[in-house]
């Protein structure tokens, strides 16, 4: 600690306003930074002492290097793809010049997907799976919360299916998708559908349950207001039910998205479906000296994306929530 800081600590009671802003700065920026620094140094020290069959465990610097390599690889692959399409275009143009009736077919570039392609695939899959689940779970949760009868009917099913790991569904989903989703020119690949459905299956429950609880615990006075005003079912849901259960609905959505993201990675590893999970698995199978560092990059990326997704939901919640003063975390 520098002398200036010590001095400011001593003068705390006098310049309390100044200090309090300094201490919030300390809390908001310095402490997290400190935590990260401690983590990095512990990691660096510990990593050196762990020897695996693929060499010593990667420390922060190796991982950083591999992250750069992955970015370079991606750039190189993009260039290759661009070159491929350029050549194809030239060839097609040349053939059309010779024979105007020629109908060119455009072939897609078939290079191996890069790390960033896999990130994109996973993000896209989790989004679709999550949206499907939400579109089902929120209305169903509202119905369950509004009507005791439908809750009684659905509750045993929820309780039975909720604890099932979605990975147990994976073989079933895979078989059903390959049997049912037959099309000559499929818009989506089967692996994508399988992953998305698996994500949906686990995203369903937290949203459904939290929505139902939120809706069933609406203030009875507000329900009485709705009755006295004779609000129709639609107005009742839009004016009373939705606004008052928004916090619970979002709690469910955020839980769902978090679980969905974790499950997706596992499902991709297990089913060899494209995505970050497959990247990790492939690197593991590869077993080169860089593999562990590359997997570590993927692990950190998965964490960062999970965090970002949660923040995104929080932002959305702030947008739609009526209580702007509420502290959301």
């Amino acid at each position: 600690m520098s002398r200036a800081q010590t001095a400011s600590l001593i003068s705390m009671p006098v310049k309390s306003l100044n200090i309090s802003s300094a201490s919030t700065l300390l809390r908001n920026a310095m402490l997290p930074l400190l935590g990260i620094l401690i983590f990095l140094s512990l990691w660096a020290v510990l990593a050196k002492n762990i020897d695996t069959s693929l060499g010593s465990f990667p420390g922060p610097s190796e991982v950083f290097t591999q992250a750069q390599v992955l970015i370079e690889e991606h750039g190189a692959q993009r260039e290759k793809a661009n070159a491929f399409y350029e050549r194809q275009e030239q060839r097609n143009a040349a053939r059309i010049a010779q024979d105007p009736s020629y109908n060119p077919t455009i072939r897609a570039f078939t290079g191996a997907p890069t790390f960033f392609d896999q990130i994109w695939t996973s993000l896209y899959t989790v989004t679709v799976g999550f949206l499907i689940a939400s579109v089902i779970a929120v209305p169903l949760g509202i119905i369950c919360g509004l009507s005791k009868a439908s809750y009684a009917a659905i509750n045993p099913l929820i309780q039975l299916l909720k604890p099932v790991s979605p990975l147990a569904w994976l073989p079933l989903v895979t078989m059903v998708v390959s049997a049912v989703y037959v099309s000559d020119d499929p818009m989506f690949s089967k692996s994508f559908i399988t992953s998305a459905v698996t994500v949906s299956l686990c995203c369903l429950w937290p949203t459904l349950i939290n929505t139902a609880v939120g809706v069933s615990s609406i203030d009875s006075d507000l329900l009485n207001v709705s009755k006295v005003l004779r609000l129709g079912p639609f107005s009742h849901v839009m004016k009373i039910v939705m606004p008052s259960s928004i916090p619970m609905i979002f709690t469910g959505l955020r839980l769902s998205l978090g679980i969905g993201w974790m499950v997706l990675i596992a499902a991709e590893m297990l089913a060899q479906n494209p995505g970050l999970g497959k990247f990790v698995w492939d690197e593991f199978q590869n077993g080169s000296s860089e593999s562990l560092a590359r997997i570590m990059v993927a692990v950190l990326t998965i964490g960062l994306i999970g965090f970002a997704l949660d923040r995104l939901m929080l932002l959305l919640q702030k947008q739609v929530s009526w209580d702007k003063g509420a502290v959301l975390r």
């Binding site: 006075d221 507000l222 009485n224 207001v225 009755k227 006295v228 004779r230 004016k239 606004p243």
Partner: peptide, 15 residues
């Protein structure tokens, strides 16, 4: 219940 018998609730019950 119906609006021809409006209720003022004890704890205001505004939305």
């Amino acid at each position: 219940p119906g609006p021809e018998r409006a209720v003022v609730f004890q704890n205001h019950s505004l939305l």
